[in-house]
């Protein structure tokens, strides 16, 4: 259903303030040419195209935008950023949107993508390095796709590409502190723009 959108003055556009602050990009520079969408390898899957995501931020359509699959489907190839005639780092804007969704503990529209990132970081947090067998296993167990990619496993194992045990970083205390302090600092500096409003 298409709802009529009430356009608020820029001063009340918390979404834009947050994105501009965290990405360092000036969103009003975007003049909606669509070159980002045109070059995006995954845009064909996005519900709001990259250009429309930029527009939604300009208009402050936070709830609508946060619900989309779009920014979760960005693979950060940065083609958009490289080609933007207004020199906006659009990929950085997508990062900001993911970050916002996580800060606000929103259920991601692309739960598999979010799950992948979560497991990936969980492993880095645990071992300091990525453990591919563990990542695949965790993902398959939690994503509801228990057999995902398993057809590749025999060949991978046979070629010694998937060691069963994780490599680890020795000074794990340091790694865990990094995770802990980064999260604390980010929550602290998140500012009033974040948070879900009724």
């Amino acid at each position: 259903m298409i709802n009529t959108v009430t356009i608020l003055p820029a001063a009340k556009n918390d979404l834009r303030s947050f994105v501009e602050k965290t990405s360092g990009q000036k969103l009003l520079r975007c003049y909606q040419c669509g070159k980002c969408t045109a070059g995006c390898p995954t845009a064909y899957l996005w519900d709001l195209t990259p250009r429309q995501v930029m527009r939604a931020v300009q208009l402050g359509l936070k709830e609508e935008l946060m619900r989309t699959h779009s920014y979760w489907l960005c693979v950060f190839c940065q083609t958009c950023s490289a080609r933007c005639p207004q020199e906006i780092d659009i990929a950085a804007v997508m990062d900001s949107l993911r970050h916002l969704a996580i800060l606000e503990k929103r259920a991601p529209a692309e739960k598999e993508v979010a799950l992948f990132h979560r497991h990936f970081l969980r492993l880095v947090h645990r071992f300091g390095k990525v453990w591919e067998v563990g990542l695949g296993g965790l993902y398959n167990l939690t994503s509801g796709h228990p057999l995902a990619n398993t057809s590749l496993l025999p060949a991978m194992f046979a070629r010694g590409k998937l060691p069963l045990l994780p490599h680890t970083t020795h000074n794990m205390e340091e790694i865990r502190n990094i995770f802990k302090r980064a999260e604390e600092l980010e929550r602290k500096s998140a500012g009033p723009e974040t948070g879900r409003k009724a």
Partner: peptide, 15 residues
């Protein structure tokens, strides 16, 4: 003021 933002494809209203 009732219009459309045709860039995002939504009807918009401004007070």
């Amino acid at each position: 003021v009732c219009g459309e933002d045709s860039l995002i494809g939504r009807p918009v209203e401004i007070a």
